[in-house]
């Protein structure tokens, strides 16, 4: 019973915090970086799709490690699926 009441209180507090944070973000929004990318992405990178321009030119450092995450997870899955006598 106490666990249920605690979980309901936790959910209500999460709801209040998220709604307050979203109202705060709507009021204090700053459109500097948005205007910068909309103006300059085609000039700098030559891509009409803004998302590709950002993740392959401005943030290439991030997307390379994102590609390495998939490599590591594939090797982990293949290592776990082998039996004992096949690995050792």
């Amino acid at each position: 019973m106490i666990k249920k009441i605690l979980s309901i209180l936790m959910l209500i507090s999460l709801l209040i915090v998220f709604s307050l944070a979203s109202f705060e973000a709507l009021e204090n929004s700053n459109s500097f970086s948005k205007d910068f990318y909309i103006e300059n992405t085609y000039k700098h990178t030559g891509s009409k799709n803004l998302v590709t321009g950002i993740y392959l030119d401005y943030r290439l450092f991030d997307s390379i490690f994102e590609a390495s995450i998939l490599l590591v997870s594939v090797t982990g899955i293949i290592f776990m699926s082998k039996r004992d006598d096949e690995v050792l």
């Binding site: 776990m80 039996r83 004992d84 006598d85 690995v87 050792l88």
Partner: peptide
Amino acid sequence: ELYGIFRS
């Protein structure tokens, strides 16, 4: 072995 990755 009942648990662990390397069980046969």
